[in-house]
Computed example of a mutant assay.
Amino acid sequence: MKKKIALIGYGALSKIFLDLFKDYLADDYEINGILIRNDEKRREAEENGYKTYKTLDELHLHNPDYVAEFASASAIKEYAVDILNKGVNLIIISVGALEDNSFYDKIQNSAKNSGAKIHIASGAIGGFDLMRTFSLDPNAIAKIQTSKSPESWAGAPYLENKNLSKTEKEIIFQDNAKKAIKGFPKNVNVAVATSIAVSGVENTQVELISNPKSKDNTHKIFLESKVAKATIEITAKKDLNNPKSSVITAWSVVALLKNINDVVMFF
């Protein structure tokens, strides 16, 4: 029997996921609906043959096995506890919501009580297997450097009233992951993902770079523990419809769902 997946959101990444779904997941899963608040987007989804929901209650009526979030940190904060309390597994891409330690604890408790699982998609980075291995050392160190074009940083609260150079590479932020997600809520999910996988949002240092020559989004992760050092570098194609996001984020959700269903699991 196929497992049922409901989505939250119908933006660029959600649409990429739905296109990939047909080729990679359709044998084992089925899409049983999409939660969309925006009327215009909901009509578009329905015209493309998808069942839609206006509310989370409607979504629950169709008993999904998994809910995959392609929306925002605010959507995670609004819906996650209710989804997990119902015993439904939740896939998160807006990992920035988890910088709030009390909220992160709350959803973990909901999952433990209901038996549901929280799956953190690797998104635009990778190496979660290494990160979790390094995290066994309580003194492990994690740092992340992200480089994007100036337009990819546009609209960040931290950069309000600041003009980024269109010709020169510049460091625009240096501090921990908790402060990074506050100042760049739509840009640095990768920093929060790295921090919660290793050493926590207060203990993970973040450096953000604006580079006019960058065509894509580049992330470098530096890990160190008492047994090893590692550097992970990923350059991901940015979504042309949303340059703040990387296309590979949607692919990572496909890979996660395939891994869940495969008899061989790589981590």
Score class of each variant (00 low, 15 high):
109 N>T: 10
99 E>I: 09
42 R>I: 12
241 N>R: 05
54 K>E: 03
121 A>F: 11
209 I>V: 15
204 T>I: 06
1 M>R: 07
163 N>K: 14
174 Q>W: 01
248 I>P: 00
252 S>N: 00
26 A>T: 11
139 N>S: 05
65 D>L: 05
25 L>M: 08
180 A>P: 03
218 T>V: 09
194 T>I: 13
52 T>F: 02
159 L>N: 02
39 D>Y: 02
149 S>T: 06
52 T>N: 05
179 K>I: 12
168 E>M: 08
212 P>E: 09
258 K>R: 12
175 D>L: 00
178 K>L: 07
36 I>Q: 01
172 I>W: 12
267 F>N: 14
262 D>H: 14
122 S>K: 13
27 D>V: 02
26 A>D: 13
189 N>Q: 12
82 D>A: 13
62 H>P: 15
147 S>N: 10
204 T>D: 05
225 S>N: 14
216 D>M: 07
1 M>K: 10
243 P>H: 02
139 N>F: 11
141 I>N: 09
155 G>Y: 00
143 K>T: 13
171 I>F: 04
225 S>I: 04
124 A>L: 11
60 H>S: 07
2 K>R: 14
179 K>Y: 12
97 A>N: 00
121 A>G: 10
23 D>Q: 07
152 S>A: 14
148 K>S: 11
74 S>Y: 07
154 A>E: 15
29 Y>W: 01
39 D>V: 06
12 A>I: 03
53 Y>A: 00
183 G>Y: 13
179 K>P: 03
55 T>E: 02
151 E>K: 09
125 I>V: 15
77 K>S: 08
127 G>E: 04
37 R>Q: 02
185 P>W: 01
37 R>H: 10
91 I>Y: 12
110 S>T: 06
6 A>H: 02
59 L>D: 12
207 E>I: 15
207 E>V: 12
4 K>W: 08
18 L>W: 07
43 R>N: 01
169 K>V: 06
87 G>Y: 05
65 D>H: 14
234 I>L: 11
92 I>Y: 14
208 L>R: 06
178 K>T: 10
244 K>P: 01
85 N>L: 02
179 K>Q: 14
261 N>C: 01
203 N>C: 04
98 L>E: 09
179 K>S: 10
97 A>S: 11
189 N>T: 08
20 L>Y: 15
224 E>G: 04
223 L>Q: 01
262 D>E: 11
223 L>Y: 07
25 L>D: 01
52 T>P: 14
130 L>Q: 08
190 V>H: 12
135 S>V: 04
248 I>Q: 08
26 A>Q: 11
23 D>C: 00
109 N>F: 09
60 H>Q: 11
152 S>H: 05
140 A>C: 15
208 L>T: 07
179 K>V: 08
231 T>P: 00
5 I>V: 15
186 K>H: 05
49 G>R: 12
140 A>P: 06
9 G>N: 10
167 T>Y: 15
164 L>P: 01
176 N>P: 00
129 D>V: 10
96 G>H: 04
